[in-house]
Nucleic acid binder design. Sequence first.
DNA 1: CTGAAAGCGCTTACAG
DNA 2: CTGAAAGCGCTTACAG
Lengths: 346, 346
Amino acid sequence: MATIGDVARVAGVSRSTASYALSGKRSISTEVRERVAAAVRELGYTPNAGARALATSQTMVIGLLAQFLRDEFAPAMMQYILGVSDSARELGYDILLVTEEDGTRALRRITDSRMVDGVVLLNVAEHDDRLDILRSAGQPGALVGLPGDPRGVDVFDLDFEATGRLMVERLHRLGHRELILVSQPEHVVERGGAYVWRLRNAAVEHARQRGITVHAVFGSSQQPHIGAELNALLDAHPDATGLLLNNEAAAAALPTVLHTRGLGSPGDLSVIGRYSDEFAKSFSLPFSFIESAPDRLGRMAVDHLVRRIEQSNEAVGGHVVRLVDPEFVDRGSVAAPRAAATGHGR
Amino acid sequence: MATIGDVARVAGVSRSTASYALSGKRSISTEVRERVAAAVRELGYTPNAGARALATSQTMVIGLLAQFLRDEFAPAMMQYILGVSDSARELGYDILLVTEEDGTRALRRITDSRMVDGVVLLNVAEHDDRLDILRSAGQPGALVGLPGDPRGVDVFDLDFEATGRLMVERLHRLGHRELILVSQPEHVVERGGAYVWRLRNAAVEHARQRGITVHAVFGSSQQPHIGAELNALLDAHPDATGLLLNNEAAAAALPTVLHTRGLGSPGDLSVIGRYSDEFAKSFSLPFSFIESAPDRLGRMAVDHLVRRIEQSNEAVGGHVVRLVDPEFVDRGSVAAPRAAATGHGR
DNA sequence: CTGAAAGCGCTTACAG
DNA sequence: CTGAAAGCGCTTACAG
């Protein structure tokens, strides 16, 4: 490979002049600039990234720590990764993808060895061991997922409490008085998946304030089981007119369950899910839902991270916790309950 | 951050001795080795990856070029990425993930700038522009997906021709005489997705040799359409007793289609799909299938790539095209057709 | 068994 | 507007 020394020699200038001609960091005569450009073309010169990183202390690489947890919907992770990767590239950064089981060790490795200028953590838990490592690292970090203690990092997440309230409010206004909420499995909560109880608690509390009932349960994340559970729930609560889903597997299983029971939506049951548009498309789900916006969250995290990397801390300001407002995507599965509309039970 | 100079000073040795003590590349007295180790612990020293890369010309990073094509099943990509990432880590390598739309430009960027020691290409097409770049790059490359011209690279893929034959043979032996094969959409073929016609042509040819009929069609990759198409196919070929699917969307839609028509499998219809175990689990598909083995292929590609990186070309030998034998995963959706078993049409 | 020195390929003050 | 030189943090022949 050609080096900048080769470029300099061919162009008949010094290495520093060649470097400045390429970076534009000081004024260069037109003639020299063109000679350098010609030499670059002739030699097919591309700067050595490692050498540049060593000289500038900037790698132009962002570390992306994905975490694949048991019983979480793995394909959904792809969306976050793409959001992060695509927006990083637009800003001139490449992505070092780390899928190691032991996230703390991996995080320490890539920050201590200065492989990256900053780090995005995915799937952050309520108490996440990676945060201590990150806070003592020399590089800034952005999280997707709200931890219990967000000090020293920038956080981006869907506002799951507002999501819970919105789901309940929407149905309450239409006259629903008895709802079912199916969350992720309980061990997702135990492992620190705080978004599960944030949505759940907010929904339950909001229902209480409105004086309506919500049967809140944890569902399985595997397809055969969750189908049976949904059936059992519908049997147990025949007067429920609304179904809220914070559980991808439940959403995927529901069409078959409804079909088997001969139920229509929203005719017999109003349904609101919480998942991504991409997920809805893959499974062609016919339900209205709250968009979980993985690409948008990934993008926000990267944008902010890059500002922290490139600007002074004073310019960027204090650390932020940015919770995205839930967006209701109407697919027509929500309506007034039969009981309220016609005066008959269903 | 502490440098090796700091370590040397604290340990009271020269930098070269500190370096050798860490790498073990020459014999060091026990006493010095321990002093260096203590200094490393005390300072929390980790070598600077960029500096090491510059000195050794080895980055310990593998570039992973994912390619997201319209109408291919995006979640499936995650499996390949995980296979590559996990096995790279086991061999001491990190992954630079590139999802850029313009794969050729991205490939040139990461190889020319020496950010990576080698490269894995995913979703390789029959005529793939990235191959020319790769062949003229200084780093070795491994492909997942068989291109028309595999010279100069190592290739790993499922044996799609054997897969087509196996699907047909399996049903032929049980007495099936009329089959339907649903492939990916035709524009996947046009774009260069050679695996589609490889499987299809082999299946058709094998059926011809066996003197049985196979209705080979291209299906949609979107859920509402493919469902309608499956229904139309079953209407058009009422005597077909076997259904072969080289199309993820078709597999995902089939349970509902069968249920709606009141058909059982294998009672009324034998079914064989081609997808990954992970996919089968996500959609809880009740069909026997040929495992597409994304994790295994990713692993094979990395193993071989690392050998090329670390050993001489003579030691590794000529470039390979490794086609994995199709593995039939029995989920009980294949049996003798009713007509053959009972003497009645269905 | 250990050290002084050169070199990897850049960038960027310092000098003119 | 341009050049000679130092330095980023490592590794590794060269010498002893």
